[in-house]
Design a protein around this nucleic acid. Structure first.
Lengths: 352, 352
DNA sequence: GCAGTTTCTGATAACGTTATCAGAAATCGT
DNA sequence: ACGATTTCTGATAACGTTATCAGAAACTGC
């Protein structure tokens, strides 16, 4: 017990800047200067210190640096949904990886926030220097998070949009553009009767952006081309709702030659329903999907032509934006709308 | 400029324990004691301090706590794949949310690690006290991460298994069990000719557990029931490979009445191929899927009967395990195999 | 009423780093 | 050759917290 390994429990004690200084025969601040690439260090000293660092296997103590520096070099990616299980259906992994990649590129860490976070706990994360900024996923029109963070003057970037955007930075999907693009393409193929299966009414009512703006976009597009349309607001996560929604649409307007949906699952339901009405896709009716989930598009037969966004890119850009804001507080608010990309597969055809 | 707000840039300076102490009229250590629920504090003092905390909006400075305490209260979830884009096809979001939920429950933070991490940078994360432990996703037989962490005596938990498991903790999918379960069910339905579309050969060769053990499990199960089988090792991410694989299987054994696949996409390809051979699923041939991705199962027609694991649960359990290990270094290694759950849908039927 | 215990509190010193200052050594200009 | 500048280095003090110690106050038991 009197042995040298009395500090056995201390096995994880890390090598400090002081150890390096001792080995290199310099002072502690000098090592620090070298670690931080400050000017005014003799080349010879620099080399000696670097060698000591290498032989000792020294790594700077992150917590200490952060305490001293006043920043945590950590960002949070926050999703509002309470139940983590539900999350899986809405948020895709590229949202996480995109943010993680951007963060690591800028030498930040990324915490993924899940679970029931109340306002107080979010404020606390910032106050307690756990995080320097937040990237908000799935921002809706009247988002309590936005109000909270704005009031408290906390740095954040939104993926999605809220109501009063003045002075706020966001990245969002350009739904109006998407609908116009969809119509441009459909019109080009000769379609005049275009149905729409969109997000649930409940989503629109609680102010979820995609639900609001895609319907607006649909109406704009109808206007632009002087067409009448018909739409249904249905759930996204079941083939059944697509099936029933399509039945409804066909009852209202049997002349439909094209249906736009906002989820691959409902599109699958659409195809089923159309088949039951004796209509093959794409020969007798075209089906187009706007949204995410390129993976699904190829599972359905026929494979689905889509207007898609890359969640990876969006999340990546939002995170870069956050780091830039943190690096330069004076940076004016950036408001970025991302247009979707048309990916032609099998589910659309010219009107005969 | 001589104004009080010379410390303007200091606007984010947080309220410290010292402020609380001053307001409450006590000493700094006393506040600390109260914050950490230590014994020996007068009830009256406790209340006074708590009130000061509330009125000031104080939150403990995480970095300082961690510096003092020597732990970071942060875990990392690490995935080995280099390109973040590829990640999306293999790792699902519940892996992240499950770990995040467990971490937050145990008052840890969770960093999601992505991008090209070399050995050195992983060691550094630990050495530099950024993280207290790592949860490794997708561990394969000869995983460099495992060797590295084991050699350096770093705390980690695996999702998946490597070669030499002595003294290591892991959570893995029980593939042998899965194959036996699959066969039990298939035999019950009267099937005797059971084909298998499994993971790519390349995966097996580089030692990816599912690829190795599901094939082993298949062979065991054949043995158990005294059957002959036929299998193909194909890619997972395309309907086409499922299509071609199934054609191959049917050529080798036209008597097949059931096919097991390990991905929903290849199952979809299977169904296509069977249809082309005039065989309807499930009337003329059953299709079963083992693996993740319950979402996909309902997109395909007919919907797919599956043996599925919950990535959320697995990740959750692995993370809890990690925290327990950190809380108690003496805890013996835990090695946990999770059996899959049979979810009956439409794609399987009794043999006529 | 006094030693012995328990309950409470505050000074002090760390944790590992970096900013600030000031002093020493080297280089420069005249 | 001498002051002025530039280059380099080290003491010192912070960042916000907690562990340790010791002392004060309040209780015990006789």
């Amino acid at each position: 017990m009197t042995k040298k390994n009395a500090n056995f429990r201390n096995e994880s004690r890390s090598i400090t800047i002081a150890d390096v200084a001792r080995v290199a025969g310099v002072s502690v601040p000098t090592v620090s200067r070298i670690l931080n690439d400050k000017e005014y260090v003799a080349e010879e000293t620099r080399q000696r210190v670097h060698e000591a660092i290498r032989t000792l296997g020294y790594a700077p103590h992150t917590q200490a640096r952060r305490l001293r520096g006043g920043v945590s070099m950590t960002l949070a990616l926050h999703h509002p949904i309470e139940s983590p299980h539900e999350l899986s259906s809405v948020i895709e992994i590229p949202y996480v990886t995109g943010a993680a990649a951007a963060a690591s590129e800028k030498e930040y860490f990324l915490n993924f926030l899940v679970s029931q976070l109340n306002p107080e706990s979010i404020l606390n994360m910032y106050r307690s220097n756990q995080i320097d900024g937040i990237i908000l996923l799935q921002v809706c029109m009247d988002d309590w998070r936005v109000n909270l963070l704005r009031e408290n003057n906390y740095p954040f970037v939104m993926i999605g949009r809220c109501a009063n955007l003045e002075g706020l930075s966001f990245i969002d999907l350009d739904f109006e553009n998407a609908m116009l693009q969809a119509f441009d393409y459909l019109i080009e193929l000769g379609h005049q009767n275009i149905g729409f299966l969109t997000y649930p009414q409940s989503w629109r009512k609680i102010g979820i952006g995609p639900a609001i703006r895609s319907l607006e976009g649909y109406k704009h597009a109808l206007n632009k081309y002087g067409l009448h349309g018909c739409y249904r607001e249905i759930g996204l996560n079941s083939v059944e709702e697509g099936f029933e929604g399509t039945n409804d649409l066909l009852q209202e307007n049997p002349e439909l030659t094209a249906i736009i949906t906002v989820s691959h699952l409902t599109a699958a339901g659409s195809i089923k329903a159309l088949a039951l009405h004796g209509r093959n896709v794409p020969q007798d009716c075209s089906v187009m999907v706007t949204g995410f989930g390129g993976n699904f598009a190829n599972v359905v037969t026929p494979s689905l032509t889509t207007l898609e966004w890359s969640p990876y890119e969006i999340s990546y850009q939002a995170t870069i934006l956050m780091t830039e804001k943190l690096a330069n507080k004076e940076l004016p608010a950036q408001q970025i709308l991302i247009p979707p990309k048309l990916v032609v597969r099998e589910s659309m055809k010219e009107v005969r």
